[in-house]
């Protein structure tokens, strides 16, 4: 069984895995510009390669796509899809923002929750959706994640969570801040029962989500290049009036400073998470953890 793969930087074009060949597609084929290497990458190449550019850049992907990349086909049982935001404070423009977010993301809320198998390992799973108001956390997101940990506690199962977020959803005021405490308390109970929570931080994970459940995993993985921080880089530049160095708040920076366990490439994420789940299933001398 392979060890967890740390980010391996390709040193030449051969190591990129035939980049020239891959990039010479049909001329009429739609492409997407890579924000890292600034090359046009054929969509067909991205689809076949988990939306990772030959240069190693991990494109942001939708929650559903990530779900397909991570769970065993047909094993996902979605939960609490009907828990959605309410504009309790009558906050200016919030209703409209919600309507747009639902339309753009095609999701009812900013997190997808459910039960699934990953390489045969049963777990509860949440995946945040950045197309929905940059996956900000309001009451509905907090409630769905809290319930997920409560179900997992009840069933004695681990939780795997993929985070992406701009932070607390300010349109819900102070109640959105309280979701940080609510989710943390549920994670604490789940943890006290000896159950595993594996957090996977993806680009970008910031604000109140970083300051709560993203950083509360027993195991914390991150995708290469993911921006992970409490304050956003723009806020820091404004506060300190200093330019930030290259690579600041990227996954590699957090690894170096000791805040994530490992950086895992998207193509190896499923097998790595499965391996971690498996190791935790066989605690206590090979007996299944009940």
């Amino acid at each position: 069984m392979a060890f967890i793969q740390f980010k391996h930087k390709p040193k030449n074009e051969l190591e990129y895995g035939g980049r020239q060949a891959a990039l010479q597609g049909d001329e009429n084929e739609p492409t997407e510009m890579c924000p890292n290497c600034h090359k046009e990458v054929p969509i067909s190449y991205l689809s076949a390669n988990a939306h990772v550019c030959p240069c190693g850049y991990h494109f942001r992907i939708s929650g559903r796509r990530r779900l397909r990349l991570v769970v065993d086909g047909g094993s996902f049982e979605e939960l609490d899809q009907n828990v959605v935001a309410r504009d309790a404070l009558k906050f200016p423009g919030y209703e409209k923002k919600l309507a747009v977010a639902r339309d753009v993301s095609d999701e009812p809320e900013a997190v997808i929750c459910g039960k699934a198998f990953i390489d045969g390992n049963e777990c509860y799973l949440f995946i945040m959706e950045s197309a929905f108001m940059m996956a900000s956390m309001g009451s509905a997101v907090g409630e769905k994640i809290t319930r997920l940990f409560e179900y997992a506690l009840r069933d004695g199962l681990p939780v795997v969570g993929f985070t992406v977020s701009g932070g607390a959803r300010m349109q819900e005021g102070i109640i959105s801040l309280m979701q940080m405490a609510k989710t943390s308390a549920a994670i604490r109970r789940h943890s006290d029962a000896g159950l595993l929570y594996c957090a996977v931080l993806t680009d970008p994970t910031t604000g109140g989500v970083t300051a709560s459940f993203a950083m509360e995993g027993d195991v914390i993985l991150a995708e290469p290049g993911a921006l992970i921080g409490f304050a956003g880089p723009r806020v820091i530049e404004q506060t300190t009036r200093k330019r930030l160095p290259k690579g600041f708040q990227r996954a590699e920076f957090l690894l170096e400073h000791g805040f994530v366990d490992a950086i895992v490439e998207r193509s190896k994420m499923r097998s790595t998470v499965a391996q971690i789940l498996e190791i935790h299933t066989n605690a206590r001398g090979g007996e299944a953890h009940e």
């Binding site: 300051a211 304050a231 820091i236 506060t239 300190t240 200093k242 600041f248 708040q249």
Partner: peptide, 11 residues
């Protein structure tokens, strides 16, 4: 919100 705070894991 600053460099050191992020470096040392404010979140």
């Amino acid at each position: 919100c600053g460099f050191g705070a992020e470096e040392r894991g404010q979140g």
